[in-house]
Design a protein around this nucleic acid. Structure first.
Lengths: 353, 353
DNA sequence: CTGAAAGCGCTAACAT
DNA sequence: ATGTTAGCGCTTTCAG
């Protein structure tokens, strides 16, 4: 099949200057072209399935590629094409199932369109997140920021450099950055109404990370509700967003004398539940607990957790849709604010007489 | 500061051929060079912190870069350098906390060395995994395959194309591919001994995905133990690796008449626990249950799950070390097989009289 | 210390 | 239908 190597495409001697070739034996488009006795353009055409190549030539090219174990460099291809077919996602905490679900939704949707996903975790650190965001964006064609902890001014200053950008649980008012979020206000109202209906009047809120805007949302609504309902007493406890912080807060919760605890999210609720259990407190007998997010484990705890469910996977999926639209110059969909669905399970009950 | 634009570095007119520039206004090294009145080489030197540049020139370059909002193209840089500073991870199931922990360990370690992580999920599909693996590898400098479901022959055929490659919970005997794994045999033996000590003689194994080699390991040991202990009766139930499958298996578990269930992993154990709970079965009163992995939730279930703990984060961290060694031409560390630690919690107890 | 030029591997407009 | 060539944006050797 005449697969000998030549150098017909390199008029000047290859003097091993410039960039570093990793594997000197690696097959390149030029080698394949030489081996098949065609031009690189033809090889490129064949590799990309162009129909305008004579069957015989195409066969020769394929044989050469096969023989040389040729695999086009995606890097070079990306550079030439101006796109990487990769998008990035940044989350505050990979350990949180909530973000993992978003990750899955995004990964799946992007994958279905031939795109890969790059992930990075900011560890709840706003500084780190900014660096990561810029770098991640530079390595890919688009970026999704989930529950970004970046303060508004910085985010506002940054958003143009990050475009195409999609925000999850965050928005930049006055800009066209697509945003998908959850109506935490509504979720909290539903939780409070549920608790009030059971006769609870003394609630304690296990607050999440201060940089979390959704924590602020919850707080604002909680305070408003407390202010609006006579006899409704609210205590706020700084907590965090993890099992551990929820678990550690058990004793403090007890000390407040509250009859119901509204946890920042399911992880915290789960931790508190466990901590309370260790202290011999029965739930919901002595104390009611609510979570937020409805992570997969929530329905399997004992007792199953009352929580506000949000469409995590959908958030990821739709983030992809918005991003894809942005990347292809189409109009992104309208911003959406998903309404949480209250799932009354067994960690809440009537207040003890 | 003389930041006007010029075209001194383009002898031929830029006729907008070849590759597609995404953003025509984007700052490139050439523009910065022109603006600063220096060569691209100098800009490159400055951007990469070379000390051999005259302070005055360096300042001019920095000013120009700043003014133009210049950000070097990581893509072009990667092409020239021959490396992407990115590594990839492929897991069967992103929903499994076990893999998420590995992901975190790897992500953190890689990040600390200035590398980014790319993830893909094979959804327990061996075919998809092979495609993903090859592509992921082509986009990055190295690959980690976690609990790969790729059959041995294919994996063996593929491993050279995937190098630098590190395997987690999998190995290719006879090759030099670094492998980090868990001694499932030992873990299962510890679990069985624990159960036998409580007087259990009829066990049921909730089997994981058939393609999982670690499932095979568990099975082999379980059968050996059963064969070696008179009176020890083992039933095998095909199950899977998720909550749902564990939950769905509850009734079947009961039907076996076993007094203890050995679940493939914590997720399955958790699902079974929940399913049994719904059927009014008390654990460990009527039935004992064990998991495997010790995912974060395991200690928070009610009752807390008896399981075999494995160093998930460490697996990710060390995977990075091996990969990094491979990529830098250093000898990778020795293969390691971590010994699970049995964590006796409250889902196991004496067999009912 | 700086610049010129070759090179990384691929794509696509243009010409034949 | 195929080849030629310019170009993607950066790095690095070499010469001065």
């Amino acid at each position: 099949m005449g697969l000998e190597m030549g150098d017909t495409h390199r008029s000047k001697p290859r003097s091993r200057r410039g960039g570093v070739r990793r594997d000197p034996a690696a097959a390149t488009i030029s080698r394949v072209a030489d081996a098949a006795g065609v031009s690189r353009a033809t090889v490129s055409r064949v590799m990309n399935g162009s129909t305008t190549v004579a069957p015989e030539l195409a066969a020769r090219v394929r044989a050469a590629a096969e023989a040389l174990n040729y695999e086009p460099s995606l890097l070079a291809r990306s550079l030439a094409l101006g796109r990487t077919s990769t998008v990035s996602l940044i989350v505050p905490d990979l350990a949180n199932p909530m973000f993992q679900d978003i990750l899955r939704g995004l990964s799946t949707a992007a994958g279905a369109h031939g795109h890969r996903l790059m992930v990075a975790e900011s560890n709840e650190n706003a500084e780190a997140e900014q660096i990561l965001a810029v770098e991640a964006r530079r390595r890919s064609d688009g970026l999704v920021l989930a529950s970004s902890r970046i303060p508004e001014p910085q985010l506002r200053a940054l958003h143009e450099r990050l475009a195409p950008l999609v925000l999850l649980n965050r928005e930049i008012p006055g800009t066209a950055v697509p945003s998908l979020s959850v109506d935490y206000h509504a979720g909290i109202r539903a939780i409070v109404a549920h608790l009030l209906g059971y006769g609870h009047r003394r609630l304690v809120y296990l607050a999440g990370p201060p940089a979390s805007t959704s924590n602020t949302d919850r707080l604002v609504t909680l305070r408003a509700e407390a202010a609006g309902s006579p006899g409704f007493h609210l205590t706020e406890l700084d907590c965090g967003s993890t099992f551990e912080t929820g678990h550690a807060a058990a004793r403090a919760v007890l000390a407040t004398g509250a009859t119901a605890v509204v946890a920042f999210n399911d992880m915290v609720a789960f931790g508190a539940l466990s901590g309370l259990h260790e202290l011999g407190v029965s739930v919901p007998g002595q104390l009611s607990i609510t979570g937020f997010d409805d992570i997969p484990f929530a329905r399997y705890t004992t007792p199953p957790l009352t929580t506000a469910s949000i469409p995590k996977n959908e958030l990821g999926r739709q983030a992809w849709e918005r991003l894809w639209a942005l990347m292809s110059g189409a109009p992104p969909g309208y911003d959406a604010r998903f309404q949480p669905r209250l799932l009354v399970r067994d960690t809440t009950g009537p207040v003890r007489a």
